[in-house]
Every structure is written in C-alpha cells, then in structure tokens.
Design a protein around this nucleic acid. Sequence first.
DNA 1: AGTTTGCGCAAGTAGATCCTTGCATATATA
DNA 2: TATATATGCAAGGATCTACTTGCGCAAACT
Lengths: 122, 122
Amino acid sequence: MEIRRDVFQAIADPTRREIIDLIAFDTKNLNAIADNFDMSRQAISQHIRILEECGLVVIKKDGRERFCQAKLEKLYEINEWTERYRVFWTGKMGALRKFLDQESDALNRTAKGSSRIKRKNK
Amino acid sequence: MEIRRDVFQAIADPTRREIIDLIAFDTKNLNAIADNFDMSRQAISQHIRILEECGLVVIKKDGRERFCQAKLEKLYEINEWTERYRVFWTGKMGALRKFLDQESDALNRTAKGSSRIKRKNK
DNA sequence: AGTTTGCGCAAGTAGATCCTTGCATATATA
DNA sequence: TATATATGCAAGGATCTACTTGCGCAAACT
C-alpha cells in the first residue's frame, strides 16, 4: 500500500471538511482555526498540513503567524466524479433504466444467442 | 475515535470508486466484479460490504449468486458539499474576492475601530 | 530583558483500514 | 452422487490514521 494523498482521501475526514468550510472564503491563522475544535492545536496543524500537501490550502507566513487560505480548485475532481451519477438523485433513474432496457432488447433482436443479459429463472 | 461509515469515507478508497464505476449502470455479481481487480475476491467482497453498509449498493440474492446494484442517491451529499465551492474552479474567484473586499471596506467605513480585518504592517 | 504568543518537530499510542489465507456452506452442473 | 462454482466467516498482519504530550524557538508584547 503506497501513500495516498489525494483529494478524496483528504476530504474523507470530517474535521478537515470543517476546516475547509471555515476558511473557504475567509483566511485564518492556525490558532484561530484550532479554536473552533475540541482537540489540540497540533492535531489541527497536522490536518492542515495534509490539506496543504494535497493542494487544498496555501499557507502564507506573516511574522510568527501562518495564514491558511483555501484553494479549492481540486474539489472539481470530486464534483466531476459525483456529477456523473447525478441521475440517481434527480429522479430520472426510472427513465434511464427504461432506455437501457430498450437498448439491450434491440441488441438481443439483432444478435440472438449472445445475450448480454445474465438472467436465470427462479 | 468512533467508527465512521459515511459516504465521504466510503468513496475515499480508489478501489471502491472503481467498483461503483463498474456497476453504476450495470448490475454485476460479486465474482464478475472481482475479476476486474488484482486482489482477492474477499478483498472485493469486503469493499462491497462497506458500500452496502453505507447504502451505496444493494445486494440481491439469486440462487448462489449475489448481484450488486448501485444505489448512488447518497452521492448527492458529496455533490452538494463540493458544489458550494464551485466558484473556485469556474474562474470567478477574482470577482468574488473583489466583492468580499468591498463588503469589508463598507463595514470599516460605518464602524471604524472594530475592524474585522486582521492586518499587520510588515 | 522577561514573558507571552504562535507555531513546528518528534515520539508514542490506540484503533482503523486494507488485504491475505484457510476453511465452511449452499447451490448449480455433469 | 460427485464435482465445480459462488460466496461467507474468521483470524492475522502490515500499515496508516488521528490523535496526544513534551519540548523548543522565534516573533511580539510589557
């Protein structure tokens, strides 16, 4: 198992999603972020490092402070993946199934014998 | 750390995403799915159990076979979360920042002294 | 100069995750 | 009935993950 540090992995953790929600449109420094959570500053710091490593956060140093700015372009990857299955929650799945069934029916008519449909009686 | 079995967690694993891609519009039985991967049948079986537990897959028994059907309604949760940050990849972030800056400028004019902007010189 | 504040580094830990192997069981097929 | 097929259950191992605590250090107040 090699180390995975992709966006899907990054947003799997609810704390990291909360961090993103917090700073999405409002750059904050590390302690300001940590204040919102019931865990140590270091824990938050580590989460932010992960977000940084996969490109969802940019850290800008200013004196002794580290300002964390969201850079959520990569969430497009995830958005695009889920978007492919949009039909599942728009209530149009019925129509799609109907269409797919007609497709395979047509295929069966033209090429009987090589049924693509795995079906059993009982 | 309690056990998390939510959709974000479920799709964090690339194998599980591949499984979803495979059966999204095409119900398959367990072995047929496992054939597509370079790991044991049990490994795939366990991934599918996880997908089932969080409601992304429904298993229909038919004789000795288990047909796995995708039920991706819950991906809406993820789609909705990413959708909130769409502005980041549509190239409209500049306009948004401009707008937000004007907002805080206005705030500063009406209520000087209680600056919302944390700023330092140098 | 002394103290506080913001943060990093490092080590340690409990438990989760991903995968394996071995064996059992029901259902088909010859 | 004997064999092959589709699958489940259970235990074990190597990592990985999400924390913690303790210490150090530079920047910023007093």
